[in-house]
Amino acid sequence: MNHELFDAAIVDLDGTMVDTLGDFVAALNQMLAETLPGRWPAAGLDAATVERMVGKGSEHLVRSTLKHVGAQMGSAQSAINLIANFDAAFAAYQRHYTGINGRHSAVYPGVPEGLRTLQQAGLRLACLTNKPLAFALELLKLKGLDGFFTQVFGGDSFERKKPDPLPLLKTCECLGTSPARTLMIGDSSNDARAARAAGCPVVLVTYGYNHGEPVRDVDADGFIDSLAELHLQK
């Protein structure tokens, strides 16, 4: 990959730099235990179920969880009541996630090396995630990744979230770079669709969360098994 093609890179967070699935599972199960006292089984949601719902922001994750749980409940009215109680459930999720952010997560192998490669090539770096900004900033700091980025934007930083192109276009604007010279690095069709619509080249990692779909079926410019594989040459 020729680093002279790029002035900057935008890097996704969940599923790209940090495996946060354990955080999501823990926060959602705590949310459900609070929302359904005495009725939510101790085993709770499993990681495979949650993984399919991750990627489009916290609101989407909570709504998808409530729909999934509602469909598992015997009473149609109970399911309707659960889904209608979104505001209370979302507030509970936010509160529980605040308490466990980063505790059940880990940086993927090769991430620091890959970010250093991008920095050494002279690229400006931004983190762009659909995770709420406060959670993203805290997680990056907890995992020692905050020093790599000049800009960090979350799912509540702009009017719309990925896969809408607006967050990428706004991030490019803040970086002072054109989309065509700004590489998007992500893990899912959300990142690829946003990049395509914004006019950014896009590379996807093969290990993240792609809504249960094979990531190599996504329209992208390349795939890597680790950020350490980012070799930028003249």
Score class of each variant (00 low, 15 high):
36 L>S: 06
155 G>W: 07
225 D>Y: 04
209 Y>C: 04
160 R>S: 14
8 A>M: 06
154 G>C: 02
25 V>R: 00
59 E>F: 07
217 D>E: 15
57 G>R: 10
234 K>Q: 13
178 S>A: 15
202 V>W: 04
146 D>S: 14
95 R>K: 11
203 V>M: 12
122 G>R: 08
113 E>K: 13
208 G>K: 02
39 R>F: 03
220 A>T: 11
194 A>G: 15
46 D>N: 14
161 K>I: 03
115 L>P: 04
107 V>M: 12
194 A>L: 11
153 F>G: 00
10 I>W: 07
130 N>C: 04
107 V>Q: 00
199 G>K: 07
107 V>N: 08
214 P>G: 08
203 V>L: 15
66 L>C: 04
65 T>K: 01
142 L>G: 06
195 A>M: 09
179 P>T: 10
138 E>P: 00
173 E>Q: 15
113 E>Q: 15
36 L>V: 04
99 G>I: 01
55 G>D: 06
107 V>G: 09
231 H>S: 13
140 L>D: 00
112 P>D: 06
46 D>F: 08
201 P>G: 04
109 P>I: 02
185 I>K: 01
35 T>E: 14
196 R>W: 10
123 L>M: 13
95 R>F: 07
23 D>P: 11
103 R>M: 13
33 A>G: 14
185 I>N: 03
180 A>I: 08
132 P>E: 06
14 D>K: 05
8 A>G: 12
103 R>A: 14
79 A>D: 09
172 C>T: 10
47 A>H: 09
45 L>F: 08
220 A>H: 06
18 V>G: 07
208 G>Q: 03
210 N>T: 00
25 V>G: 02
38 G>R: 13
117 T>V: 01
145 L>R: 05
124 R>T: 12
60 H>C: 07
102 G>M: 12
115 L>H: 07
24 F>I: 01
24 F>L: 15
74 G>E: 14
225 D>G: 14
3 H>S: 10
30 Q>V: 01
206 T>S: 14
13 L>N: 05
166 L>Y: 10
136 A>Y: 05
148 F>A: 10
13 L>E: 07
167 P>R: 01
81 N>T: 06
40 W>A: 03
141 K>G: 11
61 L>H: 03
15 G>F: 07
51 E>I: 00
192 A>L: 11
66 L>D: 08
232 L>D: 05
160 R>E: 14
158 F>Y: 15
169 L>T: 13
80 I>T: 11
9 A>M: 09
66 L>P: 01
139 L>K: 05
134 A>R: 15
127 C>E: 01
14 D>F: 06
208 G>W: 09
44 G>T: 02
78 S>K: 10
122 G>H: 10
145 L>T: 08
31 M>V: 02
128 L>I: 07
46 D>T: 04
228 A>P: 04
123 L>D: 10
215 V>M: 01
171 T>D: 01
36 L>N: 05
96 H>L: 05
117 T>I: 02
19 D>M: 10
